[in-house]
Simulated assay, not measured.
Amino acid sequence: MAMRNLFYNKGIFKSTEFTLPIIAIGNLSTGGTGKSPQTEYLIRLLKDKFRIATLSRGYKRKSTGYVLADANANASLLGDEPYQFYSKFPDINVAVDADRTNGITELLSLEPKPEVIILDDAYQHRKVKAGFYVLLTAYGDIYSDDYLLPAGNLREGRSGAKRADVIIVTKCPSHLSGAKKQGIIKKLRPLPNQKVYFTAIAYDTVVYNGVSHLNTIEVKAMKKVLVAGIAKPQPFFNHLKNENDICLIYPDHHDFSDKDIKDILAAAKDKIIVTTEKDYVRLKGKLPSDKLFYLPIKTSFLDRGDEFDKAVLDFIADYK
């Protein structure tokens, strides 16, 4: 990885730069930093101002090559996260392609073509030179305290953080003191041009199933089965569970098999099933719709969110 980055930095390996603003979101670790909520934050910020598109590789999808989401899209075709984007924001272009250069070229052939492209999980995809890099690191597991695989969870060395325009510490407690923020910033050692922001996960006050919804206060008191196939599910469980609940944990981006569905139903019996938004797009249609609910989440800046928004909008306005 160090040699690969050196070759890109020296121009031995070539990066393609495009003639429109491209924002890349990613991390140095193997996952669990909240890329999807941050991508959705940018979609909400930009979708009413610009024609935007998202481009992901479509992790664990069953299709290959470039795919543009349409009415026939599903999680198998796009991958769970891109399908989630398309389900929530059907008016934007959502595409997947492991070859981001080709994917951007395909998006630019659309009429009308996008004015801004958001690259999801593309921090290490250096074949494309984005104009604005957003690096995420999770509170309690910041990259400056971590090590490269297999000793730790980093897929790229800490020096890769130098490419970031902004660094966001995600999944923070909602009341994080100024002293603790300064302690984290000191550990991260940002460059003079890099801004550091802090965000928390904001849970919705209701769970949904596409037809009806339940208040989360009511749900917390109910007997239920909680299902999660995400990188770090404990906060989800902690937010909803009570002592009578059953918590079922599966690997990140898990493709639920027939046996998994039988196991979930056997555990549920007369209980409702509550899952994460990302898991819902893979479980929808496999479990009874009246029993299956999901809990939406959003990224919430602890402070200076307007400053982050302005940095993104200024980048787009000033892009040449």
Rank of each mutant, 00 (worst) to 15 (best):
A2Q: 11
M3P: 00
K10P: 01
I25T: 06
T30N: 10
G32A: 00
S36F: 06
T39C: 15
E40C: 10
I43V: 12
R44Y: 04
T54V: 06
S56R: 02
R61K: 06
T64F: 10
G65F: 15
A69L: 09
A71L: 10
A71N: 14
A71I: 11
G79K: 08
Q84N: 13
S87Y: 06
P90L: 10
D99E: 03
I104M: 11
P114T: 11
V116I: 14
I117Q: 00
D120L: 13
V128S: 02
K129S: 06
G131E: 14
I142W: 03
I142H: 04
D145E: 15
G152M: 05
N153Q: 10
N153A: 12
L154F: 14
R155S: 02
R158N: 05
A161M: 10
K162F: 04
A164R: 01
C172E: 01
S174R: 12
S177K: 08
Q182H: 14
G183L: 12
I185C: 09
L188G: 03
P190N: 10
P192M: 07
T205C: 02
V207R: 00
G210K: 09
K224D: 02
V227P: 01
G229S: 14
P233K: 01
Q234F: 12
K241E: 00
L248R: 03
L248Y: 02
H253G: 12
H253Q: 12
I261A: 05
I261G: 03
K262S: 12
L265P: 00
A266F: 08
A266K: 07
T275V: 08
R282S: 07
L292M: 04
L292R: 05
T299K: 04
F301W: 07
F301V: 12
L302C: 14
L302K: 14
L302V: 14
D306Q: 15
L313R: 01
D318S: 15
